[in-house]
Design a protein around this nucleic acid. Structure first.
Length: 933
RNA sequence: AGACCCGUAGCUCAGCUGGUUAGAGCGCUGUCUUGACAUGGCAGAGGUCGGUGGUUCAAGUCCACUCGGGUCUACCA
């Protein structure tokens, strides 16, 4: 007996990746026929989640497949510095030691971040290796490494010099906790329960009032006008008058603007341009400003100058009553409402659902705040980027995502790229004493470039992380230098990413790449769904439903899983719930499934255009699949040992009909799989492969060959074993992009049997479809399969004892060759469906037999003489009922003149032929029924 | 408010430009421990495709309306 090692993924997977990497097998092999793909750079200090696992599995499959199709492939690897996320993590770590960022100072803080990066930075890249990713490690990039930083600076300076980057004093989304601006994409609008208050404003020089509805009363100190709709007759008499801000010793003009919806609230809106994005626009239209005596006035657009009453901590300041100075915004609100109440200026307080802007990282309520920031002129950059997708230079898969893209691009706003953080690319701008800005790579560069001698001060802010990642496809390849890699691998072939970053990343990459490279970044964008839990819930820490791909690969105990899910919870009150849910879902923890099974699960779930509910139940099935493949190899081992096999018949392998039948199945499957991969239908590709391995190779090919291996002549045995080897080798090639580890292992064993060099990696071999096809028509194997299946069903229906053997009468008119083929399969027929005898003769009436229709030909299954047929008549009658139903259906179609004339000819022909078959079958059934009832 | 997606067997999902008897995995039922594999073999039960109406010779597949679930974008102070 060969040593029977069970399928244990751990044993297989551990060493193999190391060998791949050491050999440098993932670096591009050639300079022609390139296929390239950029990894969406994960956060350098992050860890792998299911989304990464899924997307990287897909990318790896694509890359390996292309490589095996003869392309010179590059899968560029790298990580992102993730400004905000990383800065927050490090701040939190420092806080535990009682150190604050500001106390530490910028330089020291950045050192700490680098320390953290060095300490945890390779966690995620190690995890990518566990997934089997065929990434080009020799050219790994990090968005903050020197070369990349050079590219970022270069890009900024070029855009600045072209006037596409400018500094502006505007409202931005301000995160008071992080003390930085955010781009509108980083804002989550959350609907919450809030209130709306109605406040009275007195009309100046009169004893009348107007009532104003607001959800943010505390901003009233920043009011610069009240506005009504010009069509609103209720208020026409106050237009042009002034209203007094209650509690503030100040009046504002009452203006008309069609922005105001008369039907909402009271129809009067307070205009606070310094704290509301809409009011900002209204203010701009009306040129609101303060005159020399500090009174709010309308004027020319150019005179617009909003006032701000909050500082960067969202505390009130400026020209406001003393008692409010320094108060935090919500405390100020409370105090103000009390005061208004006592002044009888608060008319109403009602519950109201409001949208609150939240920072996506901090969960802090954001404040629209007037600050100086750097902007990219996105409108200009967007135009060619829109065009590239419109004219199909860049294709979204599935296509409907382009709608999302257009929707955003058509309404794009200028992009605020400055962040008041320390971790990131410091903006390469220097200011002179008069606040004029100059862009350059360094102070000396600026001095030289602009011939400046006076004092220079560098901009403190850093760039939005997405600014650097928007350069990813070309900056990783060496830009701004004209490198060979850039020449060879740009534009890249495909981008695989999630819909959640179409705006953040995809759109911006397209804009920047077209601007700098004068070409598109990628030709196709495959948008994957999100991985959710088995109930369709988003996986999140606070829900406690996170799955770590590595835990699915290695397995994890219940205790450790609970520990992981509850560690560092932001809301500790959820802990009990999470523990209970985890215990319920994984009472025994999680088994070890191995990378190959996990990957295969991802593929099988990767239907396009929809999110994926990850059902842990499915991964077990695919581990079994790996086991099945593993045991096919065992079967071969076993045969080799048993039959004293020698490898010298390779050239003749397909002379055996069973071998060539299997070969044909493989070629057909590989063509299908190639199509599916081209269409990003990994789900369909995986089904095809599953079927090929399990159903075709194991259930039929191996099973059919078993008896032949025992009974056939020595030469035949050798031929069959050779075929088993050749065909399994083709299968592992086809399967390799999906299940790289197990296939590599099997491939080695197969090569060992053949006495071939075992250091050849599968990824360096070619897909079987690229081989000369050796296809002989083996229709009779398919007939045999049908015969066996039919007989098995009958045996099972009749609850036939295994001991009872049957005979099969082959039709008289069958060709000699077919009969020969049939006879060759005698042994398998006996073993697989209990048919011991094949005869070919006219049966007399006394023979106990029922008819079988196989490929339009009548076979007769012969039973022992004393057999009781009551049961079979019953089942034959059931069958007949179904057949008659179908016959009726088709006849009614064919009797319909409209069908005959309007349906395409081939559909009609098809139905006619079908009818003939069904009638034949019906006739045979009837014969059998009549005979035995 | 606009856009998009989904609703097919107990569960998770396929079903391409409308055309054979609507498929798979898991689960379930029965049966089998036979020398690749019980992480297995064999056989089987189970959906009329959310609803209504329409187009068509023909609809799970196209159209309209509708119910239910989800996502994104924009929002009325």
């Amino acid at each position: 007996m060969p040593n029977k090692s069970p399928y244990l993924p751990k044993d297989i997977e551990e060493s193999i990746y190391h060998e791949w990497e050491q050999t440098g097998v993932f670096s591009p092999s050639d300079k022609v026929n390139t296929f390239s793909l950029m990894i969406p750079p994960p956060n350098v200090t992050g860890t792998l989640h299911m989304g990464h696992g899924f997307q990287n599995a897909i990318m790896d499959c694509l890359v390996r497949f292309k490589k095996m199709q003869g392309y010179s492939t590059l899968w560029q690897v790298g990580t992102d510095h993730a400004g905000i996320a990383t800065e927050m993590v490090v701040e939190r770590l420092l806080a535990k030691e009682g150190i604050s960022k500001t106390n530490l100072g910028r330089k020291k803080f950045i050192e700490k971040v680098w320390d953290w990066k060095h300490q945890s930075g390779d966690t995620i890249t190690q995890q990518l290796r566990r997934l089997g990713g065929s990434l080009d490690w020799e050219n790994e990039r990090f968005t903050c490494d020197d070369k990349y930083t050079e590219a970022v600076q270069h890009a900024f300076i070029e855009l600045f010099d072209a006037g596409l980057i400018y500094q502006g004093y505007r409202l931005v989304n301000w995160d008071p906790k992080l003390q930085t601006s955010l781009s509108d994409l980083e804002v989550i609008n959350e609907e919450r329960d809030g209130k709306i208050w109605t406040i009275r404003y007195a009309i100046e020089n009169s004893d009348t009032y107007v009532e104003v509805a607001t959800t943010r009363p505390e901003t009233l100190f920043g009011d610069m006008a009240l506005a009504v709709n010009p069509e609103d007759s209720r208020y026409s008499h106050v237009i042009g008058k002034r209203a007094i801000i209650p509690t503030a010793n100040r009046s504002v003009p009452i203006i008309e603007d069609s922005y105001v919806d008369s039907a909402f609230g009271t129809g009067v809106v307070k205009i606070t341009p310094g704290h509301d994005f809409h009011d900002y626009e209204v203010g701009q239209r009306h040129g609101l400003h303060l005159n020399d005596s500090g009174e709010a006035m309308t004027g020319e657009t150019s005179m617009f100058l909003p006032i701000s009453i909050m500082d960067k901590n969202a505390c009130l300041h400026g020209e406001i009553p003393n008692e409010f100075k320094g108060l935090e915004r919500f405390q100020a609100r409370k105090l103000l409402l009390e005061k208004l109440g006592s002044m009888k200026m608060l008319v109403a307080e009602k519950d109201h659902r409001i949208n609150i802007p939240i920072g996506d990282r901090t969960n802090e309520i954001l404040e629209p705040l007037l600050t100086k920031q750097w902007y990219v002129d996105a409108k200009t950059l967007a135009l060619p980027a829109i065009k590239a997708v419109k004219n199909n230079e860049i294709k979204f898969v599935p296509q409907n995502w382009e709608k999302t893209y257009f929707q955003w691009m058509d309404n794009i706003q200028d992009w605020c790229i400055s962040r008041q953080l320390w971790w990131g690319h410091r903006i390469p701008i220097w200011f002179d004493e008069n606040e004029n800005a100059y862009a350059g790579t360094s102070e000396s560069h600026v001095r030289q470039k602009y011939r400046i001698d006076g004092a220079l001060r560098q901009e403190e802010d850093v760039l939005d992380t997405w600014f650097s990642s928007s350069l990813w496809t070309f900056a990783t390849l060496g830009w701004p230098k004209k490198t060979e890699r850039l020449e060879l691998f740009h534009p890249t072939s495909t981008l695989v990413t999630g819909f959640d970053i179409i705006f953040f990343w995809v759109a911006r990459m397209i804009m920047m790449t077209i601007y700098f490279m004068k070409e598109i970044p990628f030709k196709e964008i495959f948008i994957t769904g999100l991985i959710r839990d088995e109930n369709g819930q988003k996986m999140s820490k606070s829900k406690g439903n996170i799955l770590d791909p590595i835990d699915l690969i290695d397995g994890i105990t219940l205790e450790k899983l609970i520990e992981k899910r509850t560690f560092g919870l932001m809301q500790p009150q959820l802990e009990e719930k999470i523990i209970a849910a985890t215990r319920k879902q994984f009472p025994n923890g999680i088994d070890s499934y191995g990378t190959d099974a996990l990957r295969f699960t991802f593929y099988s779930l990767a239907a396009p255009g929809r999110d994926i509910n990850f059902d842990i139940g499915r991964i077990g099935g695919f581990k079994n699949f790996c086991n099945k493949l593993w045991n096919a190899m065992h079967f071969i081992d076993f045969q080799i040992e048993k039959h004293d096999f020698e490898w010298n018949l390779e050239a003749n392998a397909f002379m055996h009909p069973l071998n060539s039948w299997m070969h044909k199945q493989i070629i057909e499957a590989s063509q299908l799989i190639e199509d599916h991969i081209r269409n990003y239908r990994f789900d369909l590709a995986s089904v095809t492969l599953y079927e090929l391995v399990w159903s075709k190779y194991c259930d039929w090919y191996i099973e059919l060959s078993k008896n032949l291996l025992t009974e056939a002549q020595k030469e035949q045995q050798k031929l069959l074993i050779t075929g088993l080897i050749v065909n399994l080798e083709d299968i592992v090639k086809l399967a390799h992009p999906f299940m790289p580890f197990i296939t590599e292992k099997i491939h080695r064993k197969l090569r060992a049997i053949q006495g071939k060099d075992q250091t050849v990696f599968l990824v360096n071999t070619s897909m079987p479809s690229l081989r000369e096809p050796v296809i002989k028509d083996n229709g009779f194997i398919n007939d045999a399969i049908q015969i066996i299946s039919s007989i098995r069903t009958i045996r099972s229906e009749l609850e036939l004892d295994n001991q009872i053997s049957l005979a099969l009468n082959v039709p008289q008119d069958i060709s000699n060759e077919a009969l020969k083929d049939m006879n060759a399969l005698k042994a398998p027929l006996a073993r697989m469906c209990g048919v011991e005898n094949l005869i070919q003769q006219e049966l007399d009436q006394s023979t106990h037999a029922i008819n079988l229709l196989i490929s339009g030909v009548k076979y007769q299954l012969i039973f022992p003489d004393n057999f009781n047929f009551d049961k079979i008549v019953e089942s034959l009658r059931d069958k007949k009922i179904k057949i008659v139903e179908q016959i009726d259906l088709i006849e009614s179609k064919l009797n319909n003149q409209n069908f005959i004339t309007k349906a395409p000819q081939d559909v009609v022909t098809n139905q006619q032929q079908k009818l003939i078959q069904l009638k034949k079958e019906n006739q045979y059934l009837e014969e059998s029924i009549n005979k035995y009832s």
